[in-house]
Amino acid sequence: MRIGLQIPSFTFGGPDRIGPEFGRIAREADQAGLHSLWVMDHFFQIAMVGPPEEPMLEGYSALAYAAALTEDITLGTMVTGVPYRHPGALVKTVTTLDVLSGGRAWLGIGAGWFEGEARGLGLPFPPVAERFERLEETLQIAHRMWRGDESPFNGDHYVLERPINSPPALHRPHPPILIGGGGERKTLRLVAEYADACNLFDSAELPRKLEVLRGHCERAERDHGEIEKTALTNLPDGASVEQAVDTVGRLAGLGIEHVIFSQGAGQDLADLLGAARERSAGIVPARP
């Protein structure tokens, strides 16, 4: 069972404390043996965490900083909203993170949903149907660039005359692609067709989402077992190692292979999750 940590809040006591505290958490998560470290790819804080004025770091700069301070933990955004970043530049960004981290980058991506931050910063935010079209084209471009295909790409939304990607990524065959979201008609279909991992919320709907994904894999003639099933969850303040282990066991019983805990403001989960990782070593996810 893999265990990861998401850091969605940077309210560490002032701008001068953000770098040291974020760096400390990244190092401790790495030293605790956690598999993955994630930051949100948002520019404003999201409402379920705090007000938009709360501190928010740009995701890939934050991950590059974390990469320099860590050795083994993998690094990704949960997840990049596709309208915010041109796909050619996004693939170059993730490839750079992968090269400089020694092959530890993920491409976490989704259609995007936070219109308020897009409008606030003047970023494009097309209607939902177009965002999914752009997401699929971005996934196609990523696969082409990571296999070294420099031929022109002429999509409905993106045109790339010569998508060079040098140096190539270190992770083989490419940095794993994780698609976030549980949309049953579009998002999970794209997981089945293009992704190496899905990310779903820990909710009562989780078993049905996994079953829908299985159906999309069958239609795409894709081996369901090739896709890593990840779930984002959290722990209450003051939670114990036993509560973390119980959460891992419950999600493993549903077929989740990689549990990512979101660290709330005021929480400090790296060491606790490291202990839970050791206690969960024998937990094998179910194969629903």
Rank of each mutant, 00 (worst) to 15 (best):
L57V: 05
L57N: 07
E58C: 06
G59R: 01
G59F: 06
A62N: 04
L63Q: 03
A64I: 06
Y65F: 15
Y65P: 06
A67N: 03
L69S: 09
T70F: 04
D72F: 14
I73V: 10
T74S: 15
T74Y: 01
L75T: 01
G76A: 07
T77N: 08
T77K: 07
M78C: 14
V79K: 02
V79F: 08
T80Y: 09
T80G: 07
P83A: 05
P83N: 09
R85H: 10
R85C: 05
P87K: 02
P87C: 03
P87E: 01
K92D: 08
K92N: 09
K92Q: 10
T93R: 00
T93C: 10
V94R: 00
T95H: 13
T96N: 14
T96K: 13
T96D: 12
T96W: 07
L97Y: 03
L97K: 03
L97S: 03
L97W: 03
D98Q: 04
D98R: 07
V99K: 02
L100S: 07
S101T: 06
G102E: 08
G102D: 09
G103W: 00
A105H: 00
A105Q: 05
A105E: 00
W106I: 05
G108R: 01
I109Y: 00
I109F: 04
G110V: 02
G110H: 06
G110Q: 03
A111W: 08
A111N: 11
G112I: 01
W113G: 00
W113C: 02
F114V: 02
E115T: 09
E115Y: 11
G116L: 15
A118D: 02
A118W: 08
A118N: 07
G120D: 09
G120M: 12
L121E: 08
L121M: 10
L121H: 13
L123K: 09
P124V: 10
P126H: 04
P127D: 14
V128W: 12
V128D: 10
A129V: 13
A129S: 14
A129D: 13
E130T: 15
R131F: 05
R131N: 03
E133C: 11
R134Y: 06
R134H: 05
R134P: 10
L135D: 00
L135V: 04
E136K: 00
T138D: 03
T138C: 01
L139H: 02
L139W: 01
I141C: 03
I141K: 02
A142S: 09
A142V: 05
A142W: 01
H143Q: 11
H143K: 11
R144W: 11
M145S: 00
M145Q: 00
W146V: 03
R147L: 05
G148A: 01
D149F: 14
D149Q: 11
E150K: 14
E150N: 11
E150G: 09
P152A: 12
F153E: 04
F153C: 03
N154G: 15
G155F: 01
D156H: 14
H157E: 06
H157F: 12
Y158M: 10
V159H: 15
V159A: 14
E161W: 13
E161R: 14
E161Q: 11
P163A: 02
P163W: 11
P163I: 02
I164G: 11
N165E: 12
S166A: 13
P167V: 09
P168R: 14
P168K: 07
A169E: 01
A169R: 01
L170R: 12
R172I: 12
R172N: 14
P173V: 12
H174I: 06
